[in-house]
Design a protein around this nucleic acid. Structure first.
Length: 617
DNA sequence: GTGCTAACCTATTCATATG
DNA sequence: CATATGAATAGGTTAGCAC
């Protein structure tokens, strides 16, 4: 946007969105600034917008840089609360040489920066990596039109690199003839499922960071590149963080061209023993010749495994290292064997075995890609374990390791690298942005209302607009998507931006205009306070389910704007009625057993689940 | 139901800092 | 000088509230 010419001594009309400056630095627009400004700033300003800090603004002129001191304060405040409300902002304003508007903008930019850093690799980046630097690239052209297409495009050997994380942790050099290469392909699931996996991978990386040898670290970049190859196109940054993180740091990934972990080297997962024999997957005795790939239908396919170039080898992990993997890891590794056995145990089996291993609380890291994240999905219907699992996972998510991983990934392949062209000029260019449609002045808006999640909502829930009554006994499933369509691809029950199967409960409010956020404490803004909002507008009936939702903050409801209550990091799950019947419906839904009209909308979920239901071919 | 407001978002521009 | 970073804006969405 072009600012008014600097000449204007007093600019005419302030932008409509200009906030009243409430800071201690508020000053009349005409008043000269008495603030000590950052050194370089020049007082040019007459722009009303900048009057709060009129010192420097610049229509076209210089912009002031936030003073280091202020920045430190802001950073601290951001760390404490990335989304300060008005009161918090004012408190910050009192501590810095910025007005409220500037503080607000600073926080906005800061959040944006965070998201930017955590966003996934763009398709262009992926393509660049794919064609520019990888030797094990597949011949299939990258398709970035959709997450599914891109995923499917990764059925090539190069795509195998996608998910080698867990195995790799304990993995000896890929050259190990015993290693099975089939694990990875199991993870070829729609993007929606990747977030949980990302958490696991991230922690996995952190866990084994100490194990990483210098040589292994040297290969991080390569690993990152490999990981990016399997990126799907339209993934939200969350899902892609998952991907990137998954492959990033793990030495494990180093050795795997074909999944390199030795089955024998790993302790037998408990789940194997607790799983019915038919689900027990025999450990491959030789390197698998097949891989699993995700079909367009979302089903797993067994395809011949192409050999991949040898890679630098890492010393086999010590027994302690393997032990450190924990039961979850072992389970994952064990499941990887199933790629050759084709059939996966039912979710319940896996879950039970996990519980047997990890006790009541499911290990927070046992999250996989969507299709593999059986626990995560089951936890949607699990009224008892959700909180521990999700809370821990949220905690893990908050450690910033994913962002750091992505940052590392990006930096490692950023400018100067032939693999990834610099994108600095268009930092916010959507990673999956499609070419602008000719003839459209504006970029097409995402049809949020008709997203699959929205369709689900319309199908399963009452039409809030029309107020059309539904069968009160029928659970209403409201998918509260996190925001954009890109986010919906990140569906996962246990991460931010997940599909939140919300069972709306008729509210006591006779005429609620909007369905209040159940757990969000009332906004501090006076306008937001209302007697309408009962403390518990919705009764959650699935036990503590509603309270055990995964933390979605700070990215809860990304995109789309709207007031997000950062203090409401829980899933929003409601029900019309209490009872097993609802649970049954939920389970059926989670299994994809929905009516034909609904099924089309939840095919993503169904495809996801298909992998866990032995829907292999 | 509509309008207003506030808050948030993404996308973008561009000044500034940095190597 | 190219690039990265950060400040600022525009445009959009959503929610709460009042009418």
């Amino acid at each position: 946007m072009d600012l008014p010419p600097p000449s204007s001594a007093v600019s005419s009309s302030p932008p409509s969105h200009a906030l009243p400056l409430a800071s201690n630095h508020d000053r009349p627009s005409s008043s000269a600034s008495h603030l000590e400004l950052p050194s370089s700033s020049s007082v040019i300003d007459s722009d009303p917008l900048t009057q709060g800090s009129e010192l420097e603004r610049h229509p076209r002129g210089k912009r002031k840089r936030t003073a280091a001191k202020d920045k430190a304060i802001l950073e601290a405040a951001y760390a404490a609360n990335p989304k300060p409300d008005k009161a918090a902002r004012l408190a910050i304003v009192n501590r810095v040489s910025l007005n409220e508007k500037e503080v607000q903008i600073w926080f906005q930019n800061r959040r944006q920066n965070d998201r930017r850093k955590s966003r996934p690799l763009s398709p262009q980046e992926i393509a660049a990596l794919r064609y520019g630097g990888m030797q094990i690239l597949s011949s299939d052209p990258p398709t970035f039109n959709s997450s599914f297409s891109s995923d499917n495009s990764d059925t090539s050997p190069a795509a195998n690199s996608m998910s080698r994380l867990e195995p790799g942790v304990a993995s000896p050099p890929h050259s190990d003839p015993r290693s099975s290469g089939s694990f990875d392909e199991v993870e070829k699931t729609p993007d929606v499922s990747r977030e949980p996996r990302r958490c696991e991978d991230t922690e996995l990386r952190e866990r084994h960071h100490e194990m990483v040898t210098p040589a292994a670290k040297a290969e991080h970049k390569e690993n990152a590149l490999e990981a990016s190859q399997s990126q799907s196109s339209s993934v939200g940054y969350v899902s892609n963080r998952w991907n990137a993180a998954s492959s990033l740091p793990t030495p494990s990934t180093l050795g795997r061209a074909e999944n390199s972990f030795t089955l024998e080297s790993l302790p037998q997962p408990n789940c194997a023993s607790s799983t019915p024999s038919k689900y027990v997957l025999p450990a491959p005795q030789s390197k698998s010749r097949f891989r699993l790939s995700l079909s367009l239908e979302g089903k797993a396919e067994v395809i011949p495994s192409d050999p991949t170039p040898p890679r630098a080898t890492l010393p086999p992990p010590s027994s302690e290292d393997l032990q450190s993997l924990g039961p979850v890891r072992r389970l994952s590794l064990h499941r990887s064997h199933s790629t050759s056995a084709i059939t996966l145990p039912p979710i319940s089996v896996l879950t039970n075995s996990l519980r047997a291993q990890g006790g009541v609380g499911l290990p927070p890291r046992l999250t996989r890609g969507r299709s593999r994240d059986v626990l995560a999905w089951e936890s949607c219907c699990d009224t008892e374990n959700r909180e521990d699992l999700l809370t821990l996972q949220a905690k893990h998510e908050s450690n910033g390791s994913a962002i750091a991983a992505i940052t590392l990934l990006r930096s490692s392949s950023s400018s100067g690298s032939p693999l990834q062209p610099s994108n600095s000029g268009k930092r916010n260019a959507p990673s999956s942005r499609v070419a602008p449609r000719p003839g459209l002045a504006k970029k097409p808006k995402l049809s949020r209302a008709m997203s699959s999640a929205a369709k689900l909502q319309s199908s399963f829930s009452v039409n809030e607009k029309t107020g059309q009554q539904r069968n009160p006994e029928k659970p209403r499933i409201l998918i509260k998507q996190s925001g954009h369509d890109s986010d919906k691809e990140n569906w996962s029950p246990d991460e931010e931006g997940n599909p939140r199967f919300t069972f709306s409960q008729p509210t006591a409010d006779p005429a609620p205009r909007r369905r209040p956020l159940p757990w969000s404490p009332k906004r501090q803004h006076p306008r937001r306070t209302s007697a309408r909002n009962s403390p518990e507008p919705y009764r959650t009936v699935l036990g503590s389910r509603s309270n055990t939702a995964p933390a979605v903050y700070p990215h809860a409801r990304r995109g789309g704007g709207g007031k997000r209550d950062q203090s409401s990091p829980k899933l929003e799950i409601y029900e019309d009625s209490v009872g097993a019947r609802d649970d049954d419906e939920v389970e059926r839904f989670m299994r994809g057993e929905v009516s034909p009209s609904k099924k089309g909308d939840v095919d993503a979920v169904a495809g996801l689940l298909s992998l866990s239901q032995g829907n292999w071919r």
